[in-house]
Design a binder for these strands. Structure first.
Lengths: 153, 153
DNA sequence: CTACCAACGTTGGAGTTCCCAACGAATGAC
DNA sequence: GTCATTCGTTGGGAACTCCAACGTTGGTAG
């Protein structure tokens, strides 16, 4: 009789799965997304919009494709995100004179003010997310997490 | 002039966002899901199915609602998952004599064999996921991660 | 100069996960 | 016996991710 057919061979299968790094990361990520989404929603904003707004703030006038590469969003989704941001006058979308294929995305003053508020909300949500850890543990956790992520490159 | 209007006040906004726990957790989680999904796909299986199969293995004959509560899947999605598993003869779905509202979900021998293979594939994927960390670091990482997740309760 | 290939923004569509509302059937409490 | 609850099921929607195609524009090799 093979191990896998013996009754009880797979017991604690659930417990094993739920302590797997991938499972825990999923739950932690879901919690982070929920906390951040709730925080940003208090200012009528969503996570991708916050990320793109931040990227525009850093990269000055920048093409959509470059924004996509930097933030990891799909070009298709970038269109919609920028449509939303532009509709709220947080960014301006003007044709790039030096390359007429590109749109030059720029942060508006309103966008800069909004970003300051969003950054605060995002920080608070992340504070809550890691509330269970001491400052030293958070630093360690982030260092380990960064190495796991960078393995992806 | 307010800080938020001064040019450069929000520089490094992107870098700040991308080092936020929520951002890193999202990326790590996405990587884990991709690795696990690819591994399970080699056996023609998907993540939720693996989780439910594991839960059935542990909980013996069990109702769908109980499976949903344990694994966190929505009752609606549980229907589809069990349909798939049943179509492959990995679980059996029989009416519960003691409560005719319930379905008694049981693991079949084929399900038990399949689960053994899936567990192996899942473990390998998680090995790859944490490849950047030493065994001691992995243990520490999982301990911290667990505390972050349990804060959710 | 003319082909050709690559990049750009855009549109359309699909897939996954998560969540909510409703329904008929069945159960349990009062 | 009435009523609230639970069960499995169906339907639908929100949010994020990803891929394929198209017309336009730019750069390049011949």
């Amino acid at each position: 009789m093979a191990d896998e057919d013996r009754p009880g061979a797979s017991t604690a299968a659930l417990a094993r799965i739920q302590t797997l790094p991938s499972w825990l990361l999923n739950r932690a990520s879901a919690r982070g997304r929920r906390l951040v989404a709730e925080a940003l929603a208090r200012d009528g904003m969503r996570m991708p919009h916050h990320a793109v707004l931040s990227a525009v703030a850093d990269l000055g006038p920048v093409a959509q494709a470059e924004l996509g590469r930097t933030t990891g969003f799909d070009p298709k989704d970038m269109v919609g995100i920028l449509n939303d941001l532009q509709a709220q006058d947080l960014v301006s979308r003007a044709p790039d004179p030096s390359d007429r294929r590109k749109n030059a995305i720029t942060l508006t003053p309103a966008g800069r003010r909004r970003l300051a508020r969003l950054a605060k909300l995002g920080d608070e949500a992340n504070e809550t997310l890691l509330a269970a850890l001491t400052p030293a543990e958070r630093e360690l956790f982030l260092a380990l997490l960064t190495r796991v992520v960078e393995e992806d490159a």
